[in-house]
């Protein structure tokens, strides 16, 4: 099982070499890929994010946990440009101000996002799903005349192997099982060759075996990509966690290893109530 990851991360290393992943113009000289500073977002008086500050290092795998309504999804919305912060700054690398970019531009700059509910193109085939998300020139005119070359076909084939959907390449994506859809979405994300992956509850609805494989995949990806994983499944967190941030009422409550965080009195209060 893990052989395929090695093959992917090793054999296809040429394809996924950091230089290529880095995206054009990403300046990560200080080792920080994402830097949120003092971000606040409110919806009609409700403060979803309250002076949130967060820094993600290159190659880091960060887990974010927190009770419902803590602002996890809003944080991802801010990073991907879906929601504009009321105050504070969000930088991708040293130079890219995320507040200035549209969703598409942010995606293009190298941030990939997996939604809580798997969002794939249900009426396209699995192959087409991967094809559309592949890193290429994504302007209108190019798309009209685009033809897949051999290298691109190979890349799709590799990805199909990796996400174990090689046998379902021409199947309509909507017909896949929930776990398969999650994997397809992760595959689509990887096709974008992002520098930073935001994964919102990636193992929800997966079987134990699928969860285990996902954990392996994430561990294999870390180092080459930076990952931010939001999850409720503490077993899964325990499996992959290196550094964990606890989000509560829109700001970071605690940060550290899983054991540290779990021992933190405030965190226990938040989770168990007083």
């Amino acid at each position: 099982m893990s052989a395929s990851f090695k093959e992917f991360s090793g054999g296809a290393a040429g394809e996924l070499a950091p230089a290529r992943i880095a995206g054009e113009g990403l300046d990560a000289t200080h080792g920080v890929v994402l830097y949120l500073d003092d971000i606040s977002v409110s919806f009609d008086g409700f403060r979803a994010l309250n002076k949130l500050s967060l820094a993600i290092d290159i190659g880091e795998l960060r887990c974010v946990i927190g009770p419902n309504g803590a602002g996890k999804t809003t944080m991802m919305d801010v990073i991907t440009g879906k929601t504009r912060p009321d105050s504070g700054t969000a930088f991708f690398g040293q130079t890219i101000d995320l507040a200035q970019l549209t969703e598409a531009e942010i995606a293009h700059a190298g941030i990939g996002r997996k939604f809580q509910k798997p969002t794939i193109f249900e009426r396209h085939s699995v192959f087409e799903n991967l094809e559309l998300s592949m890193k290429t020139d994504k302007r209108v005119r190019k798309s009209l005349f685009a033809k897949l070359d051999g290298a691109q076909q190979d890349r799709i084939a590799e990805m199909l192997e990796l996400i174990r959907l090689a046998g379902s390449a021409s199947r309509q994506a909507g017909l896949l099982s929930h776990g398969q859809k999650q994997w397809l979405e992760i595959g689509m994300l990887l096709m974008q060759e992002p520098r930073l992956l935001l994964l919102d509850e990636p193992v929800a609805g997966m079987s134990d075996e699928e969860t285990e494989r996902t954990a392996e995949l994430f561990l294999a990806l870390a180092g080459k990509h930076s990952l931010v994983v939001v999850e409720h499944d503490m077993a899964f967190i325990g499996r992959i966690a290196r550094k964990v941030s606890v989000l509560h009422e829109g700001s970071i409550l605690a940060e550290g290893s899983l054991e540290q965080v779990q021992a933190d009195q405030r965190v226990i209060e938040v989770y168990l109530g007083r």
Partner: peptide, 9 residues
């Protein structure tokens, strides 16, 4: 209109 929390999709 109320500025609702952005929901997926």
């Amino acid at each position: 209109a109320l500025k609702g929390r952005s929901v997926e999709n």
